[in-house]
Design a protein around this nucleic acid. Structure first.
Lengths: 339, 339
DNA sequence: TTGTAGGCGTTATCAG
DNA sequence: CTGATAACGCCTACAA
């Protein structure tokens, strides 16, 4: 029986020696894929216990050529909506015995690429991601070229060959806007972060425009706030609070909606009396503010969960699928009930 | 020159063949640790480009016996404060060329253990974690036994042998409470989630008690709300809103504080007129509510960052360190200025 | 400066 | 049912 340095971890070889069997038997006993005498299995278990053996995934992965690890890329963990989808991915992964390797893009295309490159170097089994623009993304093109399976979350691609788990952003944008119109608001605008960095925003804007059109309203204003900077520049501020200000706002995310509510409050405007607001995402804090935030509630956790499960299917060879989950217009004090 | 299936990824061997050198040379050229003729280096680079080669970390890790991957364990990603620290860890890890493997415990000791076990099976280089109780944790005992380096975040252990990056929770709890007292509030209570699941809460409670004592106030009420359930039971509700209700509340987290504010509002009480509130964490949304939330602002991102950097040091053999970062009592509308 | 070769821990194949 | 052995991709003595 080989002796080992105390510092180094026991390997399958040590277990074999301890149990008095071959390493092949240990491997089989551990993975339970092959027939094993229950007597032998018991000996192996005992040896595992005695040595505190823990299988080294690295060895397994090298052998297998792939890992039961999913790479996850989100724009930012600071936005609770993304953190929530990661939690969903994580829960599903844990149940399936998979691990989660995480990276974030900070909404930048270059970081997006670097992060993916990094995740791929780990030979992840697949990826779950949220990218800037799902239909034209060099990153995704690269993945397609390599045959690396992935599923998008939040992104809602037009292309049928790109798997996704999301809600219908256009319809949701339309519903949010209709709700504002139903509440009697006619001077409407949409507020987005950085339009260029979010295909979702564009889709929501399209729904916004459609709802305006069907109501015969022509004005389709778009106000960009940017993601990080809490400061809003003068012109933008005037757009929101000046004499021609909108009486209803559809915000592309809840975080933006909360920022806008704070900004309006500072300017002495009242929500919803002066300005009605509908957000998008359904982050939990939206229920706690005063007034509470009316919003399009996405099932973020479930989206992450479903994305992971579909990823497993893709890895097994299933065809791409665009999973559309139900959303809900969650009422809130920021949007008074229809007249 | 060997041919390869198109589906399988190029290895160092393919690069060697393409460049007309040995695999050892390729390895050296890639890692730049050994002297290489610039001519050779160029050939290797060209081959790498031509083949789209990406080094397989699994092979490297197996060989090295360790991975440049940090395991991260947090109670939940749903609380922005933890998500923020993860973002900090991640940023630092990315800069150092490390990867981040993530898991969460859902505030449950058993899950905590399973998650760690899982992370260890990846042969992570070290861990950054937030546990229920840093001074008595079977999980941490196990890590100590194995000599696996780790650094705690948010936890503030008494034991000097456990590395951490945190703020001084006792002092912060004291400062928050002093601020309530300075605002003229004398009937005070502290609100926590699940006390048992958070050593931080206990430390903050201690600071709360100390501030009361030094002001000659005797009542040291503690109100537990639980983490998830948005519903609050009748007795607890009466404690907060009944005739003997506190006029000042110190909440153990901002999320709790926001829940309490909503609850008080429902009950027809005004913040801060009827009840002043100070939270803890400094999550960004706290600035956006009406009234805004006075709180102890922790440098969560920086804490994650520092924790990771200290972990690297620990891995290199540095001694454990309890890093104490500065916090700030951030004023807000929920706490009127002192009389 | 470069090449050869062995082995990291695991699983799968092929014999017994 | 079990054992011996050959990879998986990479790095690093040791030789040249």
């Amino acid at each position: 029986m080989r002796t080992r340095a105390a510092s180094s971890k026991p390997t399958i070889r040590d277990v074999a020696a301890e149990a008095g069997v071959s390493i092949a038997t240990v491997s089989r006993a551990l993975n339970g894929r092959a027939p094993i005498a229950s007597e032998t299995a018991k000996k192996v278990q005992a040896a595992v216990q005695a040595l505190g053996f823990r299988a080294n995934r690295t060895g397994r992965e090298l052998r297998a050529g792939t890992s039961r690890t999913v790479g996850v890329l989100v724009p930012s963990l600071a936005n609770p909506v993304f953190a929530e989808s990661v939690a969903g991915i994580q829960d599903a992964a844990r149940e399936a015995g998979w691990s989660v390797l995480i990276a974030s893009s900070a909404y930048e295309a270059e970081r997006e690429n670097q992060a993916i490159e990094h995740l791929l170097s780990h030979r992840v089994g697949g990826l779950v991601l949220t990218v800037a623009d799902a239909d034209r993304s060099a990153t995704l093109d690269g993945l397609d070229r390599e045959g690396m399976p992935y599923v998008l979350v939040y992104n809602q691609p037009d292309r049928a060959d790109r798997s996704s788990a999301t809600i219908d952003n256009i319809a949701a944008g339309r519903d949010a806007t209709r709700a504002l119109i139903a509440a009697g608001r006619t001077r409407l605008a949409m507020v987005a972060g950085r339009f260029a960095a979010s295909d979702r925003s564009k889709q929501r804007y399209r729904g916004f425009g459609e709802a305006l059109a069907e109501a015969g309203l022509s004005q389709v204003a778009l106000i960009e706030l940017g993601f990080d900077a809490p400061e809003v520049d003068g012109p933008t501020r005037r757009l929101l609070t000046g004499p021609d200000r909108p009486t209803g706002l559809f915000c592309s995310t809840d975080l933006l909606a909360l920022r806008v509510m704070a900004l309006l409050r500072e300017a002495g405007l009242r929500v919803p009396d002066d300005v009605a607001i509908v957000g998008f995402d359904g982050i939990p804090v939206g229920r706690l503010t005063a007034p509470s935030l009316a919003t399009i509630a996405q099932p973020s956790h479930e989206m992450g969960r479903r994305a992971f499960l579909h990823l497993l299917a893709r890895i097994e060879g299933a065809a791409p699928e665009r999973i559309l989950l139900p959303y809900e217009l969650r009422p809130g004090g920021s949007l008074p009930p229809g007249r």
